[in-house]
Amino acid sequence: MLELQNLSKYFGGVRAVDSLSLKIEPGQIFGLIGPNGSGKSTTVNLITGLLGVTNGSIRLSGEEITRLPTHVRLSSGIARTFQNIRLFGQLTVWQNLWVAENSRAQRERTSFLARWLGGESGARARITKALEFSGLSHKANELAANLAFGEQRRLELARAMAAEPKLLLLDEPAAGMNAEEIGALDERIRQIRDSGITVLLIEHHMELIMAIADRIAVLNFGQKIAEGTPAEVQANPAVREAYLGTAETSTRGTA
């Protein structure tokens, strides 16, 4: 599904991502973990095209997308949520999803005018369904900025799903959630995977990621230090060291 080859991103002298190679198989929930500042979010930004790569290549279903602009990558099947929520705050819940319908139209190559002026075919039904899936039906006409935190996260997920992606990138979806909300999120991510969408999950909440990830890669200082099943990763001494911290790493922060 997604293949990163020797992917690197340097900010000046800082190697935020350093020769990272990953292969994510279709239908997997692939976990990406690592201490703060280990390059997880940078990796997501490289995959979505918000940052340009320094070196290496990104392939989606075998197709080279390394240099494609963001909106084109999206129409080729990538969607994401953000660690710090980025909703359209002054649009209603419904309108947030309505705007997101655009990506679908783009993929179907609807003409510019039809896309923006009309082209409502099925949109209403899809949005209604998305609202039900995320439990936000009763909030359809609220401004997104006025939603509770957990609801905003759900709306962001629904907005990403509106693009009907093949690959969904979730950047710390459980951040700030309580145990009950995390339980619901766990269920929702499994449903998404079961509907045939490949998921790349970045998360600090170990319980969640160990429970649902099929495969996990661990980053530290931009490099991959381990990869395998949850059990293999948990048993890996290098991972323990990265997380528990040695004299060298503890000053730079741990998870």
């Binding site: 129409s75 909703l87 002054q90 705007v99 655009n102 139209a105 783009q106 907005r159 693009a163």
Partner: peptide, 15 residues
């Protein structure tokens, strides 16, 4: 309005 409120997310919904 989406672009004016949140340009990064706007790109990611294909705008």
């Amino acid at each position: 309005r989406a672009v004016s409120q949140q340009p990064i997310a706007a790109q990611l919904v294909g705008i």
